[in-house]
């Protein structure tokens, strides 16, 4: 008999968007409050894991046709390159700076180079966690084809 999990799939369609929104909030809050790149990337990985559990690999890979190992590599490269970039200005490894610009309607917005480093960390954590889950939970039917 074919298993029927309508409830799980319907809940997942709503809950994964809530989790994604919350992880974006955590990633952006990491500048002054609890949060940051690591837990933001882990929240993204949680949402995609929920999709993997409720649906199957084939359907998720249709909507997300990226290689998770490439994402992890790109994240590590961005993080290290941001750290090395401070050598250009004669500063120690991983030094950071920030500045602010005025936008007419919105007001003053602060930009910091730590955000770029955090993006790298988030991509690295996301790619690593998802490639671990994708590798250890492989169905045995993959080996038959």
């Amino acid at each position: 008999m074919k298993p029927n999990d309508v409830i799980l799939q319907t809940v997942t369609k709503v809950a994964s968007f809530i989790i994604l929104t919350f992880s974006v909030y955590l990633f952006l809050a990491g500048h002054h409050n609890p949060g940051g790149g690591f837990i933001g990337g882990l929240g993204f990985a949680c949402a995609i894991t929920l999709l993997f559990l409720a649906f199957d690999i084939k359907k998720v890979r249709e909507g997300l046709p990226v290689d998770f190992t490439t994402i992890a590599f790109t994240g590590v490269f961005i993080a290290v390159a941001t750290g090395m970039g401070s050598f250009l200005f004669g500063k120690p490894f991983l030094s950071q700076t920030f500045g602010s610009i005025d936008i007419p309607i919105i007001g003053e917005i602060e930009f910091a180079t730590a955000v770029i480093f955090d993006t790298g960390v988030a991509l690295a954590v996301f790619g690593t966690a998802l490639s671990i889950i994708y590798t250890i939970s492989e169905d045995s039917s993959i080996w038959k084809r």
Binding site: P3, L8, D56, I57, D139
Partner: peptide
């Protein structure tokens, strides 16, 4: 959810559900 799916099906992530 992961534990419940494991005791119900025996596997966590299926490759193709419609087979």
């Amino acid at each position: 959810i992961a534990f419940s799916k494991f005791i119900e099906r025996g596997i966590l992530v299926e490759y193709d559900r419609d087979r």
